[in-house]
Design a protein around this nucleic acid. Structure first.
Lengths: 329, 329
DNA sequence: TTGTAAGCGTTATCAT
DNA sequence: ATGATAACGCTTACAA
């Protein structure tokens, strides 16, 4: 009736539970013993209980990736990269959503503390002292895919979005655009602040003034559409850089609705270079912030720290590049 | 140094471990006792070990959702719906990817058997006897979001894609299109077979012959692009229905590359009515297969079965509708 | 109301 | 090489 335990297997095979455990874990045993155990396992359809095992050995062989919004295509890139690395190392990856609130993230990290997974990669949208504290106190290794202060004393891998925006601005200027606007996501988020400053600096480097800046309610497509009308009329602007691809696609929809052509009337640049960038129409020029590489390195950092919890935290910065497509001239 | 256990809390509070456990689980205790325990928990930063707890109580309070491809936007809709239902019921949701192979799915279900989660919602791309067997034998409740034979004896919730395709064909015919082609995904998948048949039947009902049918290598955007040239030239065809939104967007890109206008020259219809359908340009008319509702109902079935494992399996069919957008006339 | 102690299903230590 | 047994950290009878 109930699920077979290791004891049932031992009974069926006429050996001790210890022997069953050994065979299952590949420890030395005679061929005879191995054979009997295998047969019993087969017959009973025995599968070891992951909880009991991990309670004993202290590891779950599960790793968690926590992202803010599963609907954001940048996370699928990152997810795939993380998955690849951790599964090659023999771990299962589970993905959870943090939701948009910091308290959710804190709760997640706290809960992680005991027994859910051996490690956590978290990509937080907002960072506050509580979150940093919960990360510091977390019982399992945490690596942050994003930007947290060095005092957090945690492995991080982040993008260089100011430099990325600089690439976008350089590109637009080289193509003769001067009236460049910026559509940001919420400025109180980690990416939001970095990108706002990056835009300001990049324009300054070219002795240009922002044609406009606006802020969307969040990093989603509908927010992009909704925010687009807050940008100035087309005559005042010949290019707009958006804080991510979803916003950019939203803006392109609004432009089209107003009869404007991309890139002839207005050039549009996104950020993240997610799958959506090539799927959009016209295909979107986008700042590649290295999401795949960030995922990969974050996973590697996590595995390394699981191996050796004493190594000093590393802070990796992944360099951006620009994927030029048809939304810019 | 090491993480505090319930014994440490008990010691710090000067009470027994049983009392700590009781307070933590809200069982009757004096205010005095409650206070001392709370204080000790606070001071030590104690978090109960989920493994040990679940080993004892037999539940993990985790539920798993397994999807084939996290990059397919239809799954984010489903994921959100499932998440909402299960978290309201006090469960954590973890998402895992099965990969495109059946053996992966079988391995997942088997592994699920012991201790990873209290239940599983799986949306399999391919179904074979092994998978059905593993589902039948699974120690935890499984509900299938998709189509498996009734003999599997499992709760299912599936879409009615033939009827959905019928809606699409009706719509196209009503708008004067007669040369309708179908771009399927792999025909050896569950949705692939259903949709192929659905298309044939729908055309027959209108006394029409397929303008063409083709099959993409998988249900992705690049596969859609790659398969599009295998459809006949534009003169031979005035509409194409695609087995999902990603394929449809891929086709629209190819059409545009060949100077064809959507919907003037060729109308395009997708399936799933995912977020991508409204993000694409032109916005994609798409068959809404009720992914959100399927996710919700699947989650509800799972919760119900966890409550009562003896209830007879239900087979829910969610009805489709058509979301008309600008990719059709 | 509180404490003692027996498990939950494993693995690891120690004999044999 | 194999077997008995003590943990792992928790919950829950059962006793007090």
């Amino acid at each position: 009736m109930s699920r077979p335990t290791i004891a049932a297997v031992a009974r069926a095979a006429g050996v001790s539970v210890a022997s069953v455990s050994r065979v299952l874990n590949g420890l030395p045993a005679t061929g005879e013993m191995t054979e009997r155990v295998r047969r019993a396992v087969q017959e009973l359809g025995y599968v070891p209980d992951a909880r009991a095992r991990s309670l004993k050995v202290g590891r779950t062989f599960q790793l968690t990736l926590a992202v803010a919004d599963v609907g954001n295509p940048v996370y699928v890139t990152m997810m795939r990269a993380v998955e690849e690395v951790v599964s090659a190392a023999g771990y299962r990856l589970v993905v959870t959503t943090t939701g948009r609130d910091v308290v959710d993230e804190v709760a997640l990290v706290r809960g992680m503390a005991r027994g859910y997974a051996d490690g956590l990669v978290i990509s937080p949208l907002r960072v506050d002292d509580d979150l940093i504290k919960s990360i510091r106190e977390c019982e399992v290794p945490v690596v942050v895919a994003g930007n947290v202060p060095a005092r957090a004393g945690v492995d991080t891998v982040r993008a260089n979005s100011p430099k990325g925006i600089r690439l976008a601005v350089d590109h637009l200027v080289a193509r003769g655009r001067r009236r460049i606007a910026f559509l940001n996501g919420p400025a109180d988020t980690v990416p939001g602040t970095a990108r706002a400053k990056g835009f300001a600096d990049a324009l300054k480097a070219h002795d240009l003034h922002p044609a406009a800046t606006a802020e969307a309610a969040d990093f989603t497509f509908p927010a992009g559409r909704a925010a687009a009308p807050r940008l100035p009329a087309a005559g005042k602007l010949d290019a707009v850089i958006c804080a991510n691809d979803l916003l950019a696609v939203g803006v392109m929809h609004e432009l089209a609705a107003n009869g404007l052509r991309v890139p002839e009337d207005v050039a549009v640049v996104g950020m993240d270079d997610s799958e959506l960038a090539e799927q959009s129409f016209p295909p979107l020029t986008s700042v590649n912030l290295g999401s795949a590489e960030r995922g990969r390195r974050a996973a590697e950092l996590l595995l390394a720290r699981i191996e050796d919890s004493t190594r000093t935290p590393r802070r990796i910065v992944v360099q951006p590049s620009l994927s030029v497509r048809r939304s810019t001239p």
